[in-house]
Design a binder for these strands. Structure first.
Lengths: 349, 349
DNA sequence: TATTATCATGCAAAGCTTTGCGCTAAGCTT
DNA sequence: AAGCTTAGCGCAAAGCTTTGCATGATAATA
């Protein structure tokens, strides 16, 4: 029940010196004699003294906490990114305060307010797919509160961002399909306002053009990134007069949903329909057939976002966007012709 | 650069009253006249005043932060539990400080120290599989720092815990296998010191007994819960003279690893080998064939752990262990005989 | 009118740390 | 020996909030 942490005051009392002497002794201030220093340090160690971060925060006006807001916590993609953020933050002596927006702008705003109340020093955010207006972000910028976006971004002229080479990756996918002999390549896309949607769409279209394939509106479907809506999108594709022989899903959830729907229809992957996802590594390997996909360097994305955060906190000046490279990992789901590869063949494009 | 948050002092100055008057006005203290109250509240609202948690923490000696330590952040199981913890914590005006032990006792200890330095008020922990000695936990108990364990527990006579009905669940699995016609039922187990290992083992054995099946040491394998080690365990099972026709994996990772190894050997699930996991719902549905499994109520586990935390913080007295119910969800991977069910048939046992 | 009750507000301390400045005593210079 | 430097340490303020107590003023009572 007694205060569980000991303070400078406690040490000072025990040593019959002033608090300031203790403080300076611990910080090796030249004013303090080496005998006193020694005594103080020893006692501090034995009593397991650690400075009270609340007091320090009050004094220095810093809390050493970063607010991190993601659409959800349970997706491996975000969890892994958060790990990356945490690693760098920890190294810098910072902690993370986590909040999930559940893809709702309202909760996103609420989270920002709550974290602000908790006095986080800034934010690292992946916005919801609903997010259209950017006022709540601009308010942060105006108050010059450090802010970093990753994956889903906006305001990128004023906010440091970290993304992946979405367009190039999507292009690789289309080309890969083409080389495998697929000719009717469909794209299950997401909400239009998201940058990832736009960029992957651009890459998809560019890939078609380069392969000399025509652009066919019937091969482009939209969904809201949920499993169910992705399944419906896949169903619509299969129900067209001239269904696709290859499908590119904008993320892992979408790809898995597509896979399930394709199987339900009794079609074979990769023979009847090729499938490629856009995801991090983990899930792609447990499904059957193993899913060819663009892999995100999720951990690195987190690390990079954290670095950008500290940069913008210290320098106060705009950092140029960071774009990380993805890799196309080719697995069974997109290999129409038998290449003689065994299960774990992984070809970096 | 100027202090980004406004304080009582700011409000007081602007209104030409004392800080204490402002404080009391905001908390509706009867001593303050209603006109002053009105003025103060209005200004506070317009200036967007929120009390500084650092100052409050210093004063009240509470930080409103809970330290949560898990073996890793990226597994859906933990991520979902963390979500549950977060929801309850948020409701109580608390924040979570997350740390991952990476299944290393050293990092677990380190995390406890770091979080203690950050002055968390207590801990919610799922210990590493390495954890043998319990000194670092007992140190917390002695300092009467609130502590709650979930899933992997120890010291349960002194620490509130939340687990699931491991034994009963394991028993159900064995019986289900038996009813499906499987007769050589194997168990891929984990490190012996873990309570989950012991309890599920007990249930497995009890289930065998009830089904009148003999206990065969050859059908019990151990692994360290990693994907690779689980695959090796599965391989060892398949290499025995009389290999199993059914396998119960102690968690999802293990089950997936087993699945992969079984497929590699060209065996069919569920016809040649039945498979059941012990996991939360998410992954079981995306693999092929869909995995029969015991589902953890992960979100509820998190919620319950958080509730227990607050209980032990306030009451200071020991709470009886919480045991949550699991469900056996039957999917394709364990249905030897064709039941005519369609894909999404789910039978609660 | 003098005294008391009541109301509204301010002062100051506590919680913990850092740091500029002031103080004391010892040692040094000339 | 008188004056000056310097080594070594303490005071106090700032950062923000709450709250017991004191203060001041006004209204009510005897």
């Amino acid at each position: 029940m007694t205060s569980r942490h000991i303070s400078l005051k406690d040490l000072a009392k025990e040593l019959n010196v002033s608090i300031s002497t203790v403080s300076r002794a611990l910080r090796d201030h030249p004013d303090i004699s080496s005998e006193v220093k020694e005594k103080v340090k020893q006692l501090a160690l034995s009593k397991n003294y650690t400075p009270n971060p609340l007091a320090m925060g009050l004094l220095k006006q810093e809390t050493r906490m970063i607010g991190v807001i993601v659409p959800d916590l349970v997706t491996h993609f975000y969890a892994s990114i958060i790990s990356g953020i945490e690693q760098v933050a920890n190294e810098m002596g910072y902690f993370i305060l986590l909040a999930s927006s559940n893809e709702s702008v309202e909760k996103e705003k609420q989270a920002i307010e709550n974290l602000l109340k908790a006095r986080v020093e800034g934010f690292i955010i992946c916005q919801t797919q609903e997010t259209q207006s950017t006022e709540h972000f601009e308010a942060l910028i105006e108050r010059s509160i450090p802010l970093v976006f990753f994956d889903r971004i906006c305001l990128s002229d004023r906010v440091p961002t970290v993304t992946v080479d979405n367009k190039a990756a999507a292009q690789k996918i289309t080309q890969h399909f083409y080389q495998q002999g697929y000719r009717r390549i469909a794209f299950i896309s997401g909400p239009d306002q998201l940058n990832i949607t736009k960029e992957r769409m651009a890459g998809y279209l560019e890939g078609l053009k380069q392969s000399g394939l025509p652009e066919d509106p019937e091969l482009i479907e939209h969904c809201n990134l949920s499993f169910e809506s992705a399944k419906q999108a896949m169903a619509r594709l299969l129900d067209t007069a001239n269904p696709p022989d290859a499908v590119f899903g904008i993320n892992d959830t979408v790809a898995f949903a597509a896979m399930q729907k394709i199987k339900e229809r009794g079609l074979k992957i990769p023979d009847n329909v090729g499938l490629v996802g856009f995801t991090d590594d983990f899930h792609a390997m447990v499904v059957d057939p193993p899913l060819t996909s663009i892999t995100h360097p999720t951990y690195a994305i987190g690390q990079e976002a954290a670095r950008l955060f500290f940069q913008s906190k210290d320098n106060k000046q705009y950092s140029t966007p960071v774009v990380l490279q993805t890799q196309l990992i080719i697995r069974k789901s997109s290999q129409k012709t038998c290449h003689g590869d065994h299960d774990d063949a992984e070809t970096a494009w």
